[in-house]
Amino acid sequence: MEKLGKQTIKFNTPPTILECSSIVGPKEGQGPLSKYFDQCLTDEFWGEKTWEKAESKIIKETINLAINKSGIATTNIDYCFAGDLLNQCISSSFGIRDLSIPFFGVFGACSTFVEGMSLAAICTEAVASNVLCATSSHFCSAEKQFRFPLELGNQRPPSAQWTVTGSGAAIISKEGTGPYITNITTGKIVDMGISDANNMGAAMAPAFVDTLVTHFLDTGRNPSYYDLILSGDLGYVGKDIAIDIAKNQGYNIKSNYNDCGVLIFDKNAQDTHSGGSGCACCASVFSGYIFKQLQSKKIKKVLLIATGALMNSMSVQQGETIPGIAHAISIEL
């Protein structure tokens, strides 16, 4: 493990992403990526009484699935890094309270998944042999906490994004044959003064580009090094802005760049406006779609940059602007 430049860590014995699992809600199950997810629910309650309970169940079952698929005994998992969007991260802590794995709760809003994987990679390099990372989000519980009651007859502006219902989990191991986490670039908070909570893509895009450019400067790589550069949940609006600003900084990413929020829904058929968002957006698209592409060697080098908006409903009401953050990991075969 050595530090490159200001914000990047390079791993000398890169940890392997051993196994991934993903469970998503009904709407995601009707989207273009449905066949890649391990399980698509038909009911957003999943037999539970409240959405919060449903979200806990989703993350719990996703973790169980990842553990089962990997064949590693629960007792051999050294640490778990998990987080979500609900106040004080209740869905992840409630979801894994029965698992008795040493637990670090992490919060990076929608960037939590990559933040967790970064910490897990450092952890495996240092002491651990197997580390679990997971995140979840749920459309209904997020609407309830951040926006309006579901039954309120309001209109969503075209720049608004749709919180993904679902969860993704990954097991990072010291030993393995790849895909490897070779570098991590930890982002810094970038706030460009956007205060519109219905335009998160625009609020987070500058943070994405900041981390992207820093990653290239620290590692000496350029955009064409990667088969795919993937942002977490910038959506259509944010993706457009990100391409623009990156170009302005001298990096043309148009040809190999995409966004999980753009990939997960069919914009026209599913009426999701600017695309998906939420912790589970990046987590489920990576665990479901991208990981399988890596396993089948269709793509070999991925730069995954999860973006997060570090705000809550109170800060928006108080007129605060929205600070954005983005964390990058490069995953290579």
Partner: peptide, 17 residues
């Protein structure tokens, strides 16, 4: 566009649908 918060706001207003 990211020269200052002001220019970014104007740019985003133009970009947003």
């Amino acid at each position: 566009p990211i020269e200052s918060q002001e220019t970014y706001k104007q740019y985003v207003d133009k970009k947003s649908p």
